[in-house]
Nucleic acid binder design. Structure first.
Length: 779
DNA sequence: GTGCCTAACGTTTTT
DNA sequence: CGTTAGGCAC
């Protein structure tokens, strides 16, 4: 261990590190060296005789856990760090639950359902109850159930709770409690836990089995929790239980960066920590080592608009640095182009590498325009988040085989693979199996095992038996082979790999490669030593439980690859970059239109903006578009209210540069609003139709006139969709597909109008939703 | 039972 | 606009 590790800390940091016993709260401002303090503190504990086996460190992302482990290893120099229990709440609890699952009636190889799996179960239940899944939307129900679990409310309590019941009644969805109850029973029957169960069941376990609680209270003598501001009541109660004996709880957080309330996190946990324990030591880390003065000042002033914070004063010794550039573009595509152009320019001018840039947005859907513009300029990039690798269909299919092999109770997986690839077990047979399993109160798998007994006949029973034999052969493999060999065996026997291999389409090729990647990851898992310390658990069960908790950001952590990164602001928490583009700063987008109805929601959006700003070390661009495509139609956006909250002094509002915008349209109207007047005054309102034309000054050549059937219409050379707002009955219009027609009637809400149009050559009268149709006004 | 076509739907944010 | 789920025809 390095002897001088304490010398590298400032006074407050050191104070936090050397506090060994008793509750400790570290209020760590953005960029104040939080991870350094946490890792050094772990090293310091160990140096003072604390056994690594007795330290539990909880984080929110696998990435943070990995980083922490690496940095502790670096300080300690030895292999002792391996014995630390470092991980996310979910992964640590999954591991603990695995060892204790039998007490709760779960198999130790319980399946972990991701959000999609859970919603699928919920949807099944909704259909079983003969409810309308358009009214009882699975995602809505899922969120209610999730919220219940995160506040430790079991189905029975949910049904009895007046407040909750009133809410459901008011939302006209009184049966959510019933669905929750059935969902809990069903997932239990399936031997499966969803994300929230990993917390909820952990709590139940500790609460119901005093000997288990005792065991872990004495194992985890020192507990550290990162990002404490993002913990929910379930996590809070578990920590309280685990730490009750020793009270060596160290929480680290920043109330200004609390951005996960939608997941049940409550900022109260950190605000109240001092009241939860006696003699809480509070340390504030207020020196920022990350950002320039300009960036930090803007961040501080923005966050000052929130009420009720822990008082702190974040400052920096760094240089003032560049001003923050505020950029307006006409459209989202121009925004993308501007950012790509600026990255190219900055690389030349200031010698940055691709890896120095990040593009941060509010919603994943915004990535598209940036992807396109970066691709066009041949700038390599990588998107973090979005669709996880493990959510892809081909991966889910493959994993479902592995899951059913490990846990035959898992009906979600069973239903997924029972007839894929096609083996002659159709809908009718599956329905029948479900009915039988309900009648006899056994699992679907048990029905299949005894198919002949239950009266399945002919080809069906043969197909079922072949399927059962196959899965059993996989189970047999498990006892003799490692996870990788089993997976390869599964791939061969099921023909899954072959099927994808034979699909020579581009998508088929990609799918084949994805499955190969999955196999590689299993191989890697079996071959590398277990990072989590503890027992070397190389089983398939362990692998499967782990992958569900991985996010895309954890995949391919080739941090060194020189690419521009794109991610949501949520995903960027805890990271830093020399140059940051925060994009889409428009009302209804950021702040999100979903989050402007209460002060609490709006303040969380503002904290999100604060997080975005404070990712930047040296340079920060804030961009927004005058109008952008949303659901396929062009919408106007006002600049985000947050832009008005920034101090003028550090902002360069005249900056609309980057070349492209100005060059394309001769300057003038795109150059932001400099010093005079209200910034909104100078925004020119344009109709979508006008913008469309400005965007494409050069008309695309008309499609080649090819032979077409009587129903196919070849659009006119100058075909360009017009603003539907101006369309009224009597007008002549041209539809891309149906040809020329006359509007005969108009109905629907003003923002969602439906026109009845008579197309003489295009199949008669049709109802067209104006929001989605491409129509050109002829006259 | 499979594949194709149409209609409907969607955008918060994630473990 | 893009995707996807469900209905319908082979």
């Amino acid at each position: 261990m390095k002897a001088n590790y304490l010398d590298e800390l400032n006074e407050q940091q050191r104070e936090a590190v050397i506090h060994i016993n008793g509750p400790l709260m570290i209020v760590a401002g953005a960029g104040s060296g939080k991870t350094k303090v946490l890792t050094t503190r772990i090293a310091h504990l160990m140096r003072n005789g604390v056994d690594a086996f007795n330290i539990l460190s909880l984080t929110f992302t696998n990435k943070a856990a990995r980083e922490m482990k690496e940095r502790v290893e670096k300080i300690l120099g030895g292999s002792e760090a391996r014995n630390l229990y470092i991980g996310t709440f979910h992964s640590v609890f999954a591991r603990l639950l695995r060892g204790e699952a039998h007490r709760l009636g779960y198999p130790s190889d319980f399946t972990i359902y991701d959000t999609d799996d859970a919603k699928s179960v919920i949807k099944t239940i909704i259909n079983e109850l003969n409810l309308d899944d358009k009214h009882y939307k699975p995602s809505f129900v899922y969120n209610r159930i999730s919220a219940a679990k995160n506040s430790l409310m079991a189905p029975e309590e949910y049904l009895m709770d007046n407040l909750v019941q009133t809410e459901d009644m008011r939302a006209n969805r009184p049966l959510i409690g019933k669905i929750y109850d059935m969902y809990a029973k069903r997932t239990f029957k399936n031997g499966a836990m969803d994300f929230d169960d990993l917390l909820f069941k952990m709590y139940v376990l500790l609460k119901s089995f005093p000997e288990v609680l005792h065991k872990y209270q004495h194992k985890f003598k020192y507990i550290m929790i990162d990002e404490y501001q993002d913990t929910n009541p379930a996590q809070y109660e578990i920590i309280k239980l685990l730490g009750a004996v020793n009270e060596n709880i160290c929480v680290v957080g920043d109330d200004a960066q609390s951005i996960y309330s939608f997941r049940g996190a409550t900022i109260q946990n950190i605000l109240q920590f001092e009241k939860d324990y006696d003699d809480v030591k509070v340390v504030k880390l207020e020196q920022n080592y990350r950002s320039t003065k300009s960036i930090l000042n803007v961040a501080n002033e923005v966050i000052a608009h929130n009420k009720g914070q822990i008082e702190k004063n974040l400052w920096t010794d760094n240089t003032e640095g560049d001003t923050i550039k505020l950029v307006r573009t006409m459209t989202d595509n121009e925004e993308g182009k501007f950012v790509a152009d600026t990255i190219a320019e900055q690389k030349l001018r200031n010698h940055y590498d691709n890896r120095d840039f990040v593009i941060l947005y509010r919603t994943n859907a915004q990535s598209r325009s940036f992807e396109e513009s970066l691709r066009r300029k041949a700038i390599p990039y990588r998107i973090f988040g979005g669709l996880s690798f493990y959510q892809r269909k081909e991966i889910k299919d493959f994993v479902a085989y592995l899951r059913i092999t490990m846990n035959t109770r898992d009906e979600e997986s069973l239903k997924r693979v029972i007839n894929y690839p096609v083996r002659g077990i159709g809908k009718t047979t599956i329905e029948k199996t479900i009915v039988l399993s309900n009648e006899h109160n056994i699992t679907m798998w048990e029905v299949l095992e005894r198919a002949r007994e239950f009266g399945f006949k002919g080809g069906t029973v043969e197909a079922i038996e072949a399927f059962v034999v196959m899965i059993k052969s996989f189970q047999a493999l498990l006892t003799t082979h490692n996870a990788y060999d089993v997976a390869v065996g599964v791939g061969k026997s099921t023909n899954l790999v072959k099927e994808l291999f034979n699909d020579k389409t581009t998508e088929g090729l990609a799918r084949y490669e994805n499955v190969q990647e999955l196999l590689n990851s299993i191989k890697e898992f079996t071959e590398t030593p277990d990072e989590e310390g503890e027992l070397l658990d190389k089983s398939m069960g362990s692998y499967l439980q782990q992958i569900t908790l991985l996010t895309d950001a954890d995949q391919g952590n080739d941090e060194n690859s020189d690419v521009v990164k794109l991610m949501t602001i949520h995903a960027a928490k805890g990271l830093e970059f020399p140059v940051v583009f925060t994009v889409g700063l428009e009302e209804t987008l950021f702040p999100s239109g979903m989050s402007i109805n209460t002060r609490e929601e709006l303040e969380e959006e503002r904290r999100l903006f604060y997080v975005a700003i404070t990712r930047a070390k040296a340079r920060l661009w804030l961009t927004y578009a005058n109008s952008r495509y949303r659901f396929g139609n062009l919408v106007q956006n006002e600049p985000s209210r947050f832009l008005e909250e920034m101090p003028e002094k550090f902002i360069d509002r005249s900056y609309a540069g980057g070349g492209s915008v100005r060059n394309a349209f001769g300057g003038g109207n795109t150059s932001g609003w400099s010093n005079s007047g209200n910034m909104f005054d100078r925004m020119q309102r344009k109709t979508p139709g006008q913008q469309q034309q400005q965007q494409q000054p050069v008309q695309k050549p008309a499609p080649k006139p090819t032979f077409s059937g009587a129903t196919t219409h070849v659009p006119s050379a100058d075909f360009a969709p017009d603003d539907p707002a101006g369309m009224v009955p009597g007008m002549q219009v041209e539809h891309q597909k149906f040809g020329f027609g006359t509007i005969t009637a108009m109905e629907g809400a003003p923002n969602n109008r439906i026109a009845t149009i008579l197309f003489p050559k295009g199949g008669g009268e049709k109802k067209i939703m104006l929001n989605y149709a491409k129509l050109r006004i002829v006259k």
